[in-house]
Amino acid sequence: MSELNKPEEDFQDAVSSLATGESLPKEALKRMITSLVKFLLIKYRAKELTSQAEIQNKVLRDNQEYFPEVFSQASQCLQLVFGVEVKEVDPREHIYIMAPILGLTCDAMLSSGQSIPKAGLLVLVLNLIMRNGDRAPEEKVWGALSRLGVCVGSVHCVFGEPRMLLTHAWVQEGYLEYRQVPYSHPARYEFLWGPRAYAETSKWEIMAFLLRVNQGALRAFPLQSAEASREEDETA
């Protein structure tokens, strides 16, 4: 069991920020969304398809009539936090596949597929760089991420230590560039898009994606991530 294990109540609190429907009790809705997010993450890491029938029978059980609401909220969680998109590949049979958003393959590099998807955070960082004239001072990046609960020097339950992720892992993979600002004394550093980011996505695709998702859901970002740590422990 990982030392990063977090209480389930954290994730349920986050889900409540997204669960706006009034058709069933809030606590019941949170539990169903939590269960479905965990179920879909397992399917994603196993590279397996799922279907509406399977979700209704294995996750919702006696609450199958709430499928549209629960499925919509869970899909939003997956997109924003984990960078995983749920796509319907057979509209007649309602069969779904989980795929990384925007075609980003950073999660495919993870050893044995056991780590939690992180493409959602990468999209946010790429967007921060765009909003700062394509070269974002690192203090602005860390400041923005800290407001989402991702803080330098603090191990996050999903993303680990963010400095290692942004300045080493994603630099080595080619998604980011991290370099000293020319002629800066004392030395200051900035982030830029890396060549792999340009190869796999585009600024237009990033902007279009962020317009599609519910921007208000950003408030739930750090808490939603906590439950993913539990899901990783249970399936590792």
Rank of each mutant, 00 (worst) to 15 (best):
K118L: 07
I55A: 04
S72K: 15
R61M: 09
P68I: 07
R212A: 07
R196M: 13
E205H: 10
L110M: 13
R179H: 05
P195R: 01
A119N: 14
D233W: 09
V171F: 11
I95P: 03
N127M: 07
N132T: 07
E22K: 13
K118M: 11
G160F: 05
E139M: 02
E234H: 10
G120E: 05
H94C: 04
E69D: 12
S23V: 10
N132I: 04
A119R: 14
D62F: 08
Y66P: 07
V150R: 05
V37I: 08
L121K: 05
E27A: 13
R31E: 15
I206E: 03
A53R: 12
N127T: 03
H94E: 14
I101Q: 06
V123W: 05
L18H: 00
V15A: 09
V89M: 12
D13K: 04
R92S: 11
R131A: 04
S2Y: 08
S35K: 09
M207N: 13
V213T: 03
R219I: 11
P195I: 01
Q73T: 14
W204R: 12
K87W: 06
V84C: 06
R147L: 14
E69V: 11
N132P: 03
L145W: 08
E65T: 12
Q79A: 13
E227W: 02
K118W: 10
A187V: 05
V84D: 00
M32L: 13
G174V: 07
L223H: 05
A228E: 00
L29Q: 07
V141E: 04
L128D: 12
P137L: 03
E232V: 03
A236P: 05
V155M: 09
E161D: 08
L121V: 00
E65S: 15
I116W: 07
A197V: 01
R31F: 13
K30R: 14
A226T: 09
E88L: 00
V213E: 00
K58H: 06
I33E: 01
K118Q: 15
K38W: 13
E227V: 03
R188K: 14
I95M: 03
A136S: 06
L60G: 12
I55L: 03
P186Y: 01
A187N: 11
E173S: 14
L60F: 04
S51Y: 11
K203W: 02
M130N: 11
E200H: 11
L36P: 02
V15R: 02
E234V: 04
C151V: 15
L104H: 02
L80I: 13
I129W: 11
D134R: 01
L60S: 05
D10Y: 15
S75P: 08
G21A: 15
A199G: 09
N57Y: 03
L218P: 09
A119D: 15
G83F: 00
N214E: 11
Q56F: 02
Y66T: 01
L40H: 02
E8L: 11
R219W: 10
C77Y: 00
S111H: 09
F39K: 00
L102Y: 02
A208H: 07
I55Q: 05
Y183N: 08
E139N: 12
Y175Q: 01
L192V: 01
V155A: 06
E139P: 00
T235W: 15
C157A: 15
D10G: 06
V86W: 01
I97H: 12
